[in-house]
Simulated assay, not measured.
Amino acid sequence: MKKTLFLLCAVALLAACNQEAKDAPKPAPASVQATLVPQTPPTDQWVGKWIGVEGLNLTIAKDDSIGRGHYVLTMQYGLDAGDSGTFKGEAADGGIAFTRPDGPQLLRAGDGEATGLKWLADKKDCLIVATGEGYCR
């Protein structure tokens, strides 16, 4: 009995040593960000300060801690003190997508006339959240 047990253990050890090395794990595919976000997103040109009407303002900064195409938006978007905040944004088709308390938003390029605000009507370089909310340089 001991001889049989010894023989089975020896065969098991030899079988384990004879296995071929497994293939190395394949590298993960390129990240979605690397394949979908261009090296320099057009929205990078929007980094900086933008001015609205009656004290409304927007400052866009790159969020390099996350990666390209990510931004931090600091804004006063309404006349009430509570209508301000800092929001994370991401390059999206047509602009920068972000969410604030009044819901998901898309910041997009336009001109002063597209803001719907007569005080900005003659401006050419503007960013618009919605009609009546725009920021220009």
Rank of each mutant, 00 (worst) to 15 (best):
D83M: 01
L56N: 11
T43N: 06
T99K: 02
H70V: 14
P42G: 13
T74D: 07
T86L: 01
V32K: 15
T43A: 13
D111R: 02
K124A: 09
D111V: 08
D125L: 05
T115M: 05
V32F: 15
E20L: 15
A109C: 02
F6D: 14
T86Q: 11
D93M: 13
T43I: 08
T74I: 03
L58F: 06
V11S: 03
P25R: 12
T4Q: 09
L107Y: 05
G69D: 10
P104K: 14
C126V: 08
Q19I: 12
E133W: 04
S65Y: 09
L56G: 02
L5K: 06
K118W: 11
V72P: 10
T74P: 00
R137Y: 10
G94N: 03
A15W: 05
D83I: 00
L120E: 00
V47C: 09
D111M: 07
G95Y: 10
P25D: 11
G55N: 10
V129N: 09
S65K: 15
L120R: 00
P104V: 10
T86Y: 08
K123C: 04
L106F: 04
G116I: 00
K2Y: 15
L106D: 01
Q39M: 07
F6M: 13
C9Q: 04
L7R: 15
T43P: 03
A34Q: 13
G69A: 11
D122N: 09
A109K: 07
R100I: 06
T59N: 12
K26D: 10
H70D: 10
R108K: 15
P38C: 07
A12E: 01
D23M: 08
C136I: 01
D83E: 11
A24I: 12
T131D: 02
K88G: 14
E90H: 11
